[in-house]
């Protein structure tokens, strides 16, 4: 699969705006703390290389997974390391709730939901596509287990198309990433909806 620079730029811009909306939503929930978004990465990773991309497979992470249906099929996830997830839950609840509490995990699930929905809304507006998020689910587990479940849910073949944007909040030491995995054929539709050929 090959894309030219212009197409990559468009997809990056899409991810950038989507993540911008998601982090704005998060910032609002965190009393307007400043969040910094990295340049989005459009990754076409061969399946046998994905493990090297995940990092330490047994590191504990929090993952919120949401399926996307409608005009395109895809998978979205919000993944953050365990320390960030702990800090996030504490910040959101004025230090009243811990991540190990059921309430803490619902808070996390809700944050993920709001962020992913904001991302999708931005995408839908720009592309004029109908995008419907599923009910969210949260897991706190080994990075490898969280990723393998998401990738299996996406039934990825030999090449994984992944749009990844990382962000950090320096004041409270939170960092995380938003992942978007459009199915391979919908990757093309996404590009076409922006008025360009994907392949």
């Amino acid at each position: 699969m090959e894309m030219n620079y212009q197409q990559l730029d468009f997809l990056k811009e899409l991810a950038n705006i989507g993540t911008g909306h998601a982090t704005t939503a998060l910032s609002t929930m965190l009393d307007n703390k400043r969040l910094v978004i990295d340049v989005p990465e459009i990754l076409l990773i061969s399946f046998d290389q994905i493990s090297t991309h995940i990092g330490a497979l047994d590191q504990i992470v929090a993952g919120i997974y949401i399926g996307v249906s409608g005009d395109i099929q895809g998978h979205m996830a919000f993944i953050l390391d365990f320390e960030s997830a702990k800090t996030l839950v504490r910040s959101l609840t004025d230090n009243k709730v811990d991540i190990s509490d059921e309430l803490g995990q619902s808070a996390l699930q809700e944050v993920g939901n709001i962020m992913v929905t904001s991302y999708l809304n931005a995408l839908a507006t720009m592309t004029d596509l109908f995008l419907a998020p599923s009910v969210p689910a949260v897991a706190i587990d080994m990075a490898g287990a969280v990723w393998d479940s998401i990738l299996a849910g996406a039934a990825v073949a030999d090449i994984i198309t992944l749009i990844k944007t990382m962000f950090t909040a320096d004041e409270i030491e939170i960092s995380g990433s938003i992942l978007f995995l459009p199915s391979e054929q919908d990757f093309g539709r996404l590009a076409q909806s922006l008025g360009m050929e994907a392949y």
Binding site: D141, D148, S149, L151
Partner: peptide, 23 residues
């Protein structure tokens, strides 16, 4: 042993796979 891979050994050693979710 990473996702989708396999490996085998004879006599000694350890085979490890980390992060099995639905796999």
């Amino acid at each position: 042993v990473n996702m989708g891979e396999m490996a085998a050994l004879k006599s000694s050693g350890v085979l490890t796979t980390v992060g099995l979710g639905s796999c």
